[in-house]
Amino acid sequence: MITCIAVDDEPLALRQVVSYIEQTPFLQLSAKFTNASLVKEYLKTNAIDLMFLDINMPDLSGMELAKSLKNPPKIIFTTAYSDYAIESYKVNAVDYLLKPIEYNDFLSASTKAEDFIKKDTLLKTEIKKTGDYLFIKSGQKHIRINFNDIEYLESQKEYVCIHLVNRAPVKTLIRLKNIEEVLPQENFMRIHRSFIVNLNHIITVERNRIIYSDKRFIVVSDTYIDQFKEFISNNFFS
């Protein structure tokens, strides 16, 4: 069963989405909201799989909410406007439904989300953590990787490329958020939707960029910049 929430400031539109959720056997409604700001607080203490999210809402828009979440659930946007379609895929939305929404389109988008969630669950089982290292599956091999040898991790669609110190990168079929859950939080920080860095291997920071070499650098995204600046101020002399 996929747990989900519905978010829309228009009561009629919210009732329609809730009705569609109730008609869909593999979906279970956990909560509904007319205010996106309340969703952030709810997600701090409640784990859900999927969010049906309206874009145009007062105070905090659905797009702003999606960008502000560090580990968002799967998202299906619901809106009366087509202008945000490209932007929605930049935040890895599963689908984008235009109002008025037909149930067939709702079911198709929900089924797509179900496939993604099932794949996430299967991929998560590939990580084996023990002490200060983990084993990951790469092709037909199971490879031991010491946490201290990891320079940074890069999401590449359904794969994660683990960049290592003095070793060739290792690529594994897994989601970045799944591997993030087993990394030591005191040593690793997500600084972009697609990157997690080992704080122990940061040597040079220029503005909002972590410099590894003349050709390799990572830009810290706006979503994570405050947390990263706090780390810099606590560990670097100004």
Rank of each mutant, 00 (worst) to 15 (best):
I5N: 06
V7T: 02
R15H: 03
Q16P: 03
Y20W: 01
I21K: 00
T24W: 13
P25L: 03
F26K: 09
F26P: 07
L27W: 03
S37F: 04
L43F: 00
K44V: 09
N46W: 01
D49A: 02
D49I: 05
M57G: 02
D59F: 13
S68N: 06
L69A: 03
F77L: 07
A80V: 10
Y81F: 11
I86H: 08
E87V: 07
V91D: 05
K99S: 04
P100I: 02
P100A: 04
Y103L: 09
F106C: 05
S108K: 14
S110H: 05
K112I: 09
T121A: 15
L123H: 14
K124L: 13
Y133T: 10
I145H: 02
I145W: 02
N148A: 15
E154M: 04
S155I: 06
Q156N: 14
K157H: 12
H163F: 09
V165C: 12
V165R: 09
K171T: 15
L173Q: 10
I174N: 15
I174R: 08
L176I: 07
E180H: 05
V182P: 08
Q185S: 13
E186S: 15
N187E: 13
N187H: 06
N187W: 01
I191K: 01
L199C: 12
H201M: 14
I203K: 14
T204F: 12
R207G: 12
N208H: 11
R209S: 14
I210D: 05
I211G: 09
Y212H: 12
S213P: 05
K215I: 12
R216W: 14
V219T: 12
S221G: 08
T223R: 14
F228N: 12
F228G: 15
F228S: 09
K229Y: 05
N234T: 14
N234W: 01
N235K: 06
S238I: 14
